[in-house]
Design a protein around this nucleic acid. Structure first.
Length: 111
DNA sequence: AACCTGACTTCGG
DNA sequence: TCCGAAGCCAGGT
């Protein structure tokens, strides 16, 4: 049974616009749990497929893709580049430029 | 309940 | 700047 946090995370991730990225902790915060970054990680790992989530737009707090080479880094990197996000060889993204900054946090948790 | 494992983050040395 | 430890959340054994 999905928890409220779980549903919130799903809804928030769906709102990340194309060409922007958000961090795990940012998503967790919007979803109502400031320290739920690991929870976000688990949700992506377990159910990004069935909800058709833009999972590739979620990266680590230092502005770097968390996946390792040979374990998905290349795939996430190419998905981001395809929509205009600049990613270097190691998966580094300039958050100053590409971080998603929603105007209002009011309705983020709603579908 | 105890312990482990992650697509995590923060802090100290 | 670069680890390691510790804290964190959720699920699986």
């Amino acid at each position: 049974v999905p928890t409220e946090f779980y549903n919130n995370v799903i809804n928030v991730i769906r709102k990340i616009p194309k060409g922007k990225v958000a961090t795990y902790s940012q998503i967790a915060s919007y979803a109502g749990s400031d320290k739920g970054a690991r929870g976000v990680s688990w949700i992506l790992h377990s159910s990004s497929g069935k909800y058709k989530l833009p999972w590739h737009r979620v990266i680590g707090e230092p502005g770097k893709i968390s996946l390792k080479p040979g374990k998905g880094l290349e795939r996430q990197r190419s998905l981001l580049r395809k929509e205009g996000v600049e990613v270097d060889f190691y998966g580094k993204v300039n958050l100053h430029t590409f971080r998603w900054k929603p105007k209002s946090l009011k309705s983020l948790k709603r579908p």
